[in-house]
Design a protein around this nucleic acid. Structure first.
Length: 462
RNA sequence: GGCGUGUUGGCAGAGUGGUGAUGCAGCGGAUUGCAAAUCCGUUAACACGUGUUCGAUUCACGUACACGCCUCCA
């Protein structure tokens, strides 16, 4: 199966050909750990998890190296550290723990490496040193080191920015010390009381972009296959990363494929803290919106399109997944975790996940339960959280609840036998309000619990 | 101002130079005491204009509108 991926570099879908067939390498920009991950952070995590699963299937499991970094030194972290009077390390380690919990909740596979920026300071320093010695960077009096974009001919080629016509200085005041307003920080001096490291240019800390260059060099080498992240990173982050890596590594190529996912909106609006429409994975978890549902919603729009997160989509996903996940209990098929051919085809066409979901519907229509369940497993919709959750909720007196439901069903049946339909409908309403759905199948009545089953409502008289 | 993306039926959302997306909702039917669930069937769309073509929702150009990046950001 030929994998095609849209390459931001060429602005077109290309056949994916690994640099080395026996060793495929992917680097994805991970989170800055200063706060809970929001669904905008979750989108690339899910998208590149899917790509990772696909690569593992097409090539050999062990031949894929997937690196997703953690930015654990940054202005936002330091600001929080000062405001809350907490050590930087406390903030970052707690946030990393949250991030991991969220990813488990979303059933995301562990990357091969999850390097932290602070563990690669020496590599960053030697890279900056090399850039200075090659005149790709210059040092200011106060010890700030800047990359000189004029020193790299191809600067702007990835994001197709024309340096001269860019509206530099319109939104941010131009730093007069810079040779070119677009020159960016490699190393900046820091206050002795703040987090920092000693360097040839004095005590300080790295700029934002250099960490990725240092870590991908260290873990993947000078050139690798796929570099991913959110579309907002294309400029300036990836442009800068490319420039400094090419110059420091003396290579021509950093990444063969640049892959970017679109942004997340909430109910048609840009997600932002000031609008109060900022949704974290934790928020959703507290509202009993399960990981599989979040995964479903995030995959229901193609990764390059903007995704609109709406309550309507969430409840649609809940309804569909309630049915889909219940099949794990109903159908006993051998689990091998391989998707069907059509699903593989859809994925190989630039990760067409909406088409994948369509194919899932088709599999049910043609009653290919083996294909269906194993595709579910492959896509990461495995954990039967809906059932787990409803069991947990009723645990306090599960038997009593089941007994109560069975009593009510029996009472309803008796009423029906006596043709007392007013009474039987009353009982049915009560059950349905509580989240018990009734299925009359000939002589028998079966009941199932809906995702938001609330046992308390069973006890309420109408 | 520069760079880029998008506009598909009531909603969501793929895709295609000529024929079916799909899901939800709607409508009709089977089923039911009536429902729900399920099953069967079904309506309905390609922003606008010009061009290329035997044929354009699909290609090209233009217009309008929307959105993103150019500042930290996934």
């Amino acid at each position: 199966m030929k994998l095609k991926i849209y390459n931001s570099k060429s602005r077109s879908k290309e056949n994916f050909n690994p640099i080395n067939k026996n060793e495929i390498k992917m680097y994805v920009c991970g989170p800055t750990v200063y706060d809970r991950a929001h669904i905008g952070n979750a989108r690339p995590v899910i998208v590149f998890d899917l790509l990772y699963r696909l690569l593992r299937l097409i090539y050999n499991d062990k031949s894929i190296t997937y690196v997703r970094n953690i930015t654990d030194v940054d202005d936002k972290i330091i600001t929080r550290s000062i405001n809350e009077n907490k050590p930087v390390n406390d903030i970052t380690s707690e946030t990393i723990r949250w991030f991991n919990e969220d990813n488990d909740y979303l059933n995301v596979l562990k990357p091969t490496h999850e390097p932290k920026a602070t563990q690669y300071i020496s590599q960053m320093i030697s890279m900056i040193d090399k850039l200075v010695s090659k005149n790709n960077a210059y040092v200011l009096n106060d010890g700030e080191v800047l990359f000189s974009v004029n020193s790299f001919d191809n600067y702007g080629s990835l994001s197709r920015q024309n340096l001269k016509s860019m509206n530099v200085g319109n939104r941010v005041e131009i730093d007069k010390r810079k040779k070119n307003p677009l020159d960016f920080v490699l190393w900046k001096p820091a206050d002795k009381n703040n987090i920092g490291w000693n360097s040839p240019w004095g005590y300080g800390r790295p700029g934002w972009h250099i960490e990725c260059s240092a870590m991908c060099k260290e873990l993947l080498g000078g050139s690798f296959d796929i570099h991913g992240g959110g579309i907002d990173l294309l400029f300036p982050h990836h442009e800068n990363e490319l420039a400094q890596s090419i110059c420091a590594n003396d290579t021509k190529l950093l990444a063969n494929f640049w892959v970017h996912n679109g942004f997340v909106n909430i109910e048609g609006q840009k997600m932002s803290k000031s609008l109060g429409n900022y949704l974290t994975v934790e928020d959703l978890r507290k509202k009993d919106i399960y990981g599989a549902v979040i995964r479903f919603v995030l995959l229901s729009t193609h990764y390059r399109q903007p995704l609109d997160w709406t309550n309507r989509k969430v409840s649609e996903a809940q309804n569909i997944l309630t049915k889909w996940l219940s099949l794990f209990d109903k159908k006993d098929v051998p689990i091998h975790g391989k998707p069907t051919k059509k699903i593989l085809e859809a994925l190989c066409d630039d990760l067409n996940s909406p088409l994948v979901l369509t194919e899932m519907h088709n599999l049910l229509k043609i009653e290919d339960f083996d294909g269906f369940i194993n595709s579910m497993v492959f896509l990461g919709f495995t954990s039967n959280e809906l059932n787990k959750k409803s069991n947990k909720k009723n645990k306090f007196d599960e038997n009593n609840i089941h007994e109560l439901i069975n009593d009510l069903i029996l009472a309803r049946q008796t009423a029906r036998d006596n043709k007392d339909y007013r009474k039987s409908d009353e009982i049915r309403n009560r059950l349905e309000k509580a989240g018990v759905s009734i299925n009359d199948l000939g002589e028998n009545t079966k009941w199932t619990l809906k995702p938001f089953f609330n046992p308390k409502k069973l006890l309420e008289e109408n």
